[in-house]
């Protein structure tokens, strides 16, 4: 049952991502991408990372994609910009090479790949305990990064900032 669910959601994720990158209309891309994130969230649930799954839906599918949609709406795309994938042989070659090498790398994991999954459950309490003890400094650093991003966004979006 669990295996079946993984392949279903994994397949869904791949499919929606494929649509995302190939849709001619950016709005469709964004919508497909929400689907992709939802499928990924389901995979996280299968990995018992419940908090991550929740955040994935809330932040990615919710906040970030809404942001994308806003921007897409604000920009008037011309007709010639609404094109799908421009298949360049070199890019395809690079992508396939990367995938092959990645597959071989995974195959080479060896004994580590045979290990059983642990019993851990990614509940908010468990993650909070690690994040606010061991990772408190990086956490604060990330908060500073977000603050900087907010400031940068404000500065960049001012109309007279071209000067």
């Amino acid at each position: 049952m669990e295996g079946l669910l993984f392949y279903v959601f994994g397949g869904l994720a791949i499919l929606t991502t494929l649509f995302t990158i190939s849709s001619k209309n950016p709005v469709y891309s964004a919508l497909w991408m929400i689907g992709s994130f939802a499928a990924t969230a389901a995979v996280f649930v299968l990995l018992e990372a419940f908090l991550i799954a929740t955040v994935e839906v809330l932040v990615y599918a919710g906040a970030i994609m809404v942001l994308f949609l806003f921007v897409i709406m604000m920009i008037n795309f011309k007709a010639e910009e609404q094109k799908g994938l421009r298949l360049s042989p070199l890019a395809v070659l690079v992508a396939l090479t990367f995938l092959t090498l990645f597959g071989r790398a995974v195959g080479d994991l060896g004994s580590a790949s045979g290990s059983k999954p642990n019993e851990l459950v990614g509940t908010p309490g468990a993650i909070a305990e690690v994040m606010f003890t061991r990772y408190v400094v990086p956490f604060e650093a990330v908060s500073m990064l977000l603050l900087a991003a907010i400031l940068g966004t404000v500065v960049l979006s001012r109309r007279n900032s071209q000067a």
């Binding site: 991502t17 995302t20 891309s29 994308f68 920009i75 890019a91 395809v92 690079v94 990367f98």
Partner: peptide
């Protein structure tokens, strides 16, 4: 890996900057 490669393809093959960011 498959999802990553798809994202990579998006970056390399899309011309719309929004789509590149999505990838």
């Amino acid at each position: 890996g498959i999802l990553f490669t798809l994202g990579l393809c998006g970056v390399m093959m899309r011309r719309n900057v929004i789509l590149v960011l999505m990838s």
